[in-house]
Design a binder for these strands. Structure first.
Length: 195
DNA sequence: TTGCCGATTACCT
DNA sequence: GGTAATCGGCAAC
């Protein structure tokens, strides 16, 4: 069990953070129990200049308030009337960029995850941005939390360094509306571990 | 105040 | 492959 990644880790270039998060462990402690999974898919969202980002054009609404926090906070939003998605805010205060966590390989607390998810198979426990939120009990109350051991929501460093050739970059999912930005290669997956 | 649509998922054919 | 579910955010009016 590694120490949680420091705020400094997140306050860097967003694409780099998205790459470096692959292989790390996302942990949510619920009622004293660790629910955790290995991060195997991420997407970078580049703020004001990125038409796919919620903060495109410097939009500063109530929903996206936590994206303006310093890197190392959680940005959790509600979508499609029923799902939550979890992001890690990157860069500095007032630089609203973030990394969406798109998929986990479940590691700890599988029984609790199965109970929360009621999925047909363990493959479907956390292989999607809204699925992993449900599996780990992440919801609106997690929005804006600092990622550290005090809040019980944090990320632990990868045990082993991930070789660059294990990382595949490609276009982001579900952002066809974003014009040129839709094609930017800001989606990162760990080869053969993303499903 | 209205109306469109979403950083998705699950279930259908 | 297609689409219902389900409702808040957002921009236009």
């Amino acid at each position: 069990m590694a120490r949680p990644l420091s705020m400094r880790f997140f306050q860097r270039d967003t694409s780099q953070v998205a790459r470096d998060l692959l292989g790390c462990t996302l942990v949510h402690i619920v009622k004293g129990k660790r629910l955790a999974g290995r991060i195997v898919e991420t997407e970078a969202y580049l703020g004001a200049k990125d038409r796919a980002a919620h903060t495109f054009g410097g939009r500063h609404t109530d929903r996206v308030r936590s994206m303006y926090l310093a890197g190392g906070h959680a940005y959790v939003y509600f979508v499609y009337g029923m799902h939550y998605c979890f992001n890690v805010v990157t860069r500095k205060f007032n630089e609203p960029e973030a990394v969406l966590i798109r998929a986990l390989q479940p590691l700890e607390g599988l029984e609790d995850m199965r109970r929360k998810r009621r999925a047909k198979s363990d493959r479907d426990l956390a292989n999607g941005p809204a699925k992993l939120c449900e599996a780990l009990g992440i919801n609106r109350s997690c929005d804006g939390l600092a990622l550290n051991s005090e809040t019980g929501l944090f990320i632990e460093a990868a045990r082993n360094k991930i070789a660059p050739d294990l990382i595949v970059a490609g276009p982001r999912v579900g952002v066809d509306y974003a014009g040129e930005a839709a094609a930017w290669p800001l989606r990162f997956t760990l080869k053969a571990l993303n499903k």
